[in-house]
């Protein structure tokens, strides 16, 4: 098992990450979106673990375990429970113009690769070539956040952005210091639970999870 072989697996997983990011962009159903998010987390955890194994960076194992526990198991489980309780699992989002969104997505990917180029040239990590993909998935998640009008997809976009950032940290520097990763994971966990509570408040007040109702506060 040579390093190049590992590297190819990591590159494959990175490509998968990007593909999932595109799939999320075009996914209309909330259930499908959560499943995709779990898969993205799984790809991230696997690639982090492989990088940890092949480079001997042991603290990355913790990072992989955190991703697995939090983003593959806990958060998707919590979201599935939430959508059952809120009874929105059949909800389909009427999205306008998926092709246009995809085109914008492709432009973002090109932009991300160009932005990452000078940095990845300076990086000393074996995984530096995946930095462009990491940045691209951050931008795609961001695009998903701004094109959705429902609350849960926006939050999944936010979490997918966090996935991309973790991937960026792994590819550029073999991950952040452990204490920071723990802190970030704690924040994600708290964010998900706070938003879980918040969803019920939105539902109670607006009788819907559609954020189109939220248009009161506009500057006149």
């Amino acid at each position: 098992m040579s390093l190049t072989y590992h590297l190819q697996v990591v590159n494959l997983l990175a490509a998968l990450l990007l593909l999932i990011a595109f799939a999320m962009l075009s996914q209309r159903r909330i259930v499908g979106l959560i499943t995709l998010f779990a898969w993205q987390g799984a790809a991230l955890a696997t690639s982090t673990a492989i990088v940890a194994w092949s480079t001997g960076q042991h603290h990355l194992y913790y990072s992989a375990a955190l991703t697995l526990g939090l983003k593959v198991v806990l958060v998707p489980w919590y979201f599935f429970r939430l959508i059952r309780q809120l009874d929105v699992d059949r909800e389909v989002e009427p999205m306008i113009n998926i092709p246009t969104t995809m085109l914008i997505g492709i432009i973002l990917v090109i932009f991300a690769f160009n932005l990452a180029l000078p940095i990845s040239q300076m990086a000393g990590t074996v995984t530096r070539s995946t930095l462009g993909i990491a940045l691209a998935s951050v931008l795609l998640a961001f695009l998903m956040m701004i094109t959705r009008s429902k609350a849960i997809p926006q939050v999944i976009g936010f979490l997918a952005m966090e996935n991309g950032l973790f991937f960026a940290a792994t590819s550029a520097t073999y991950g952040m210091p452990l204490v920071v990763e723990l802190g970030v994971a704690l924040d994600v966990l708290v964010a998900v639970f706070v938003l879980g509570i918040f969803f019920f408040h939105i539902r109670e007040t607006f009788d819907s999870m559609d954020l189109k109702h939220m248009e009161r506060l506009r500057e006149k």
Partner: peptide, 21 residues
Amino acid sequence: RTPAALEAAWKYFILCGVGIA
């Protein structure tokens, strides 16, 4: 928990969340 307050909080979370990312 008024509609306006929920909207403000949502905006606060999303914008600051993206910013902080």
